[in-house]
């Protein structure tokens, strides 16, 4: 197990390095330069050159890359070249909890909706319940996150003022203030996710219900609830867990869009503003974090297989 974990972690680090390198060069291949854009109106070419020197952008690209890379290895992602020159670490440390809060809560909401919905649809196949779940999944998948986000703001925040429309409160400000700001964004992001998972669970359950061991379990006279929850669901979850892992990473991208609608300064907003401003260090730092979340959530999923399925053992 530990050997497997080590191998996978090294693999994850290599992926993160490759992503960071790719992003580094892509940013620089794109025409335009942060300082030229900043100073375009002033037309002060000397000031632009001075800034470029200050941030090392006048040096050859490989030197820039090596410098950034060696600094990043030491945990120094540089400072934002825009505005108040805040260190990138500080920006990331503020943004990560916000995005993870949205992604985590939407994940929980999605599972709370999807698992029962998928189970009901599979056990009551071709009934009103099943069609209801299918309709929900269809709507959930077709509806763009940001549109659902706007609808939620209009109805639940503006019209009846149940929940705050925008912004974020850290957990240190109290549980309810933190949660109340997250509920709407989490629903907006989680609905599409719930739709995918509900459909997956439904079809996986239908496969499992046809198996010999389910017939054996039924022939033992077990209760319907035991059959479904203990015998069928763990087997149905094996294929679904893969999708959950990939979809958790997709939740991150959903969070990027929805953060903008709800004016939450998470990773997504940081990334988008960084790209618009050509704030190289910020974009590189944010992408590195996103790729880390991506590869490690996938690693976590692979570890989960071993928990659900006793046939899977690492390092046999």
């Amino acid at each position: 197990m530990s050997g497997y974990l080590l191998r996978r972690s090294i693999g994850a680090l290599i992926v993160m390095w490759a992503v960071a390198t790719l992003v580094f060069f892509m940013l620089r291949i794109v025409p335009g330069d942060p300082f030229a854009a900043m100073m375009a109106d002033a037309g002060d070419m000397e000031a632009v050159e001075a800034l470029r020197r200050k941030f090392g952008l006048d040096q050859p690209m490989y030197i820039q890359y090596l410098k950034w890379f060696s600094n990043a290895l030491q945990g120094d992602f540089g400072t934002s070249i825009y505005g108040a020159r805040v260190p990138v670490q500080q920006l990331l440390l503020e943004a990560i909890p916000r995005t993870l809060s949205i992604a985590g809560l939407s994940f929980i909401i999605a599972l709370i909706i999807a698992v029962p919905a998928g189970l009901i649809a599979a056990t009551k196949r071709n009934t009103g319940w099943d069609h209801g779940v299918t309709l929900f999944a269809f709507l959930g998948l077709s509806m763009p996150d940001f549109w659902l986000a706007i609808l939620l703001i209009v109805f639940l925040a503006v019209n009846i003022s149940w929940l705050p429309a925008i912004g974020y409160e850290p957990l240190s400000a109290g549980f309810w203030p933190w949660l109340s700001h997250l509920i709407l964004p989490a629903i907006a992001v989680g609905t599409g996710f719930a739709a995918i998972i509900a459909r997956m669970i439904r079809s996986a359950m239908l496969e499992v219900l046809k198996t010999d061991y389910m017939r054996v379990a039924r022939a033992k006279g077990l209760k319907q609830s035991t059959l479904m929850i203990y015998h069928a669901l763990p087997n149905a979850l094996i294929p679904v867990v893969t999708v959950i892992g990939i979809a958790f990473a997709l939740l991150m991208s959903g969070a990027v869009v929805v953060e903008n609608v709800f004016s939450i300064k998470g990773l997504g907003r940081l990334l988008i503003q960084g790209i618009l401003n050509r704030d190289y260090p910020v974009v590189q730092g944010a992408i590195l974090v996103v790729s880390a979340i991506f590869v490690f959530s996938n690693l976590l999923v692979d570890m989960l297989y071993g928990v659900i399925d006793p046939r899977i053992r690492y390092d046999s």
Partner: peptide, 20 residues
């Protein structure tokens, strides 16, 4: 089922739940 009539099936390889 199981209590008053027991049943044995054809395929032992697939008749037991793999995760339990």
């Amino acid at each position: 089922r199981g209590r008053r009539i027991g049943m044995i099936f054809q395929e032992p390889m697939t008749s037991l739940n793999p995760v339990l």
